[in-house]
Amino acid sequence: MPDTTDRRILRHLMADPDAPATELAERAGLTTASLWRRLEKLRAQGVLKAIEQSIDWRALGWEVEVSLRFTLDKTDPRAFDEFIAAARKVPEVTEIQTFLGSVDLRLSVIARDMSHWQRIYRDSILTLPHVSDSDALMLVSTIKNSTEVAL
């Protein structure tokens, strides 16, 4: 389990993931070498998986983001596997999640504009197998988007 110093490092890393190691070490009250050793230990423990760059799809001209919720017809035991395999082939699907409850899966889909969204929906989404019900939520704005948690 991470100790107090590890949690301090993680808090600073969450707050500013692009901070140079020397700056992060200074904020955490460590030498750069000590910081690197602790980061390696956190990676080895599986606490720190990766430092990722995220893409702002809107800055690249992808203006439409839709969250699709699906309930599957589970009379076929292969329903989940076949649905997921088909959804993975849709290039505009950026995320696939499974759930327990009334909704079985959620897909995040991006499109350049409404015309593009209509083509994706008609040609790719409506052809996904084993769907008994679906619901679409179009993103209007993001109020909060954070990966930070209290440590």
Rank of each mutant, 00 (worst) to 15 (best):
2 P>K: 11
5 T>E: 08
6 D>N: 10
7 R>W: 12
9 I>T: 10
10 L>F: 11
12 H>M: 06
15 A>V: 04
18 D>Y: 08
22 T>S: 01
24 L>A: 00
25 A>S: 07
27 R>F: 05
29 G>W: 04
32 T>E: 00
32 T>Q: 02
33 A>H: 04
34 S>G: 15
39 L>K: 11
41 K>C: 06
41 K>H: 13
42 L>S: 12
43 R>I: 01
48 L>G: 04
48 L>F: 10
49 K>W: 07
51 I>S: 12
53 Q>V: 12
53 Q>T: 15
55 I>Y: 05
55 I>E: 01
56 D>S: 03
57 W>Q: 01
59 A>T: 07
61 G>E: 03
63 E>Y: 01
65 E>V: 10
66 V>M: 06
68 L>C: 13
71 T>H: 11
73 D>P: 02
75 T>S: 15
75 T>A: 14
78 R>I: 04
78 R>T: 15
79 A>V: 08
81 D>W: 01
83 F>M: 06
85 A>E: 14
86 A>Q: 05
87 A>F: 01
90 V>C: 05
91 P>V: 01
92 E>F: 01
92 E>M: 04
95 E>K: 15
100 L>Q: 09
102 S>D: 13
104 D>Q: 06
105 L>Q: 13
106 R>H: 04
107 L>M: 06
109 V>L: 12
112 R>L: 10
112 R>S: 11
112 R>N: 11
113 D>C: 10
115 S>G: 12
116 H>L: 03
117 W>H: 02
119 R>I: 11
120 I>H: 09
122 R>F: 02
129 P>C: 02
131 V>N: 04
132 S>V: 15
138 M>F: 14
139 L>A: 13
142 T>N: 02
144 K>P: 07
146 S>W: 00
146 S>Q: 02
147 T>E: 09
147 T>H: 14
147 T>C: 02
150 A>R: 12
